[in-house]
Nucleic acid binder design. Structure first.
Lengths: 110, 110
DNA sequence: AGGTATTGACACGGATCGTGTCAAGTTCGG
DNA sequence: CCGAACTTGACACGATCCGTGTCAATACCT
């Protein structure tokens, strides 16, 4: 009841300090997939905002272009899926794997 | 005795179909680290050429800029270090980890 | 119905990157 | 030791990418 966690494009843009046109371009390139209202207005969830914050970091701070962001985002997702799986295996190799994954995570902006 | 596997910049550039200035810029950005002769001439090994082929793919085919290439290269190295370590753990989770790593490898251009 | 916000399309500047050019230094055979 | 061929680093010129701004048309809400 407090927070709907759903924002239209102007509110999302204000929260992220991004231009609405930038958000539209990111969607057109497949970087984010906001849902739509019946009248085809974009609706951003909190998860989308988090994804956009990562994109903003990679673009503004790291200087990566959108083609690179696309790949790094997919890598970031894979890392998130892997991390809970590294609970097995012999402790030594498990640790080394976790270390390398951590390195990948950092490069992907996580 | 057959192949020295060592090339000066013009030969490396010809083999890769890249401009010598491009190779110099890549080194200045830390993407490759050719060794030097006593007279400070760049010497490229076969490994460097392979690395440069990956860079060329990411830039020309994938459209990633150099900031992105830098990160993807580091990720690619981490993937190479991880892959031999996934021989342990329960088969099921091992397989899922291998699948995700494979996905990351593809995004990194491997 | 009217005023505000969103939609998509287009165009304008700044930054990035490959390429070309240049003078100065290095290499190596004669 | 001379000189031709190559490499060195620095600079500049286009092409492309990307954020931003503008526009008319549509959607939303009171």
């Amino acid at each position: 009841m407090t927070h709907p966690d759903l924002y239209f494009i102007s509110m999302a843009a204000r929260l992220l300090d991004l231009h609405p046109q930038t958000l539209r371009k990111y969607e057109r390139l497949g970087l984010v997939r906001p849902t739509r209202t019946i009248g085809s207005m974009r609706v951003y969830t909190e998860d989308e905002l988090e994804r956009l914050r990562l994109i903003k970091y990679l673009v503004d701070e790291a200087g990566v272009n959108l083609a690179g962001v696309q790949r790094l985002l997919e890598i970031a997702e894979a890392v998130q899926r892997i991390q809970p799986l590294i609970k097995e295996g012999r402790p030594e190799s498990r640790r080394r794997i976790a270390t390398e994954i951590q390195k990948i995570a950092e490069m992907a902006g996580l």
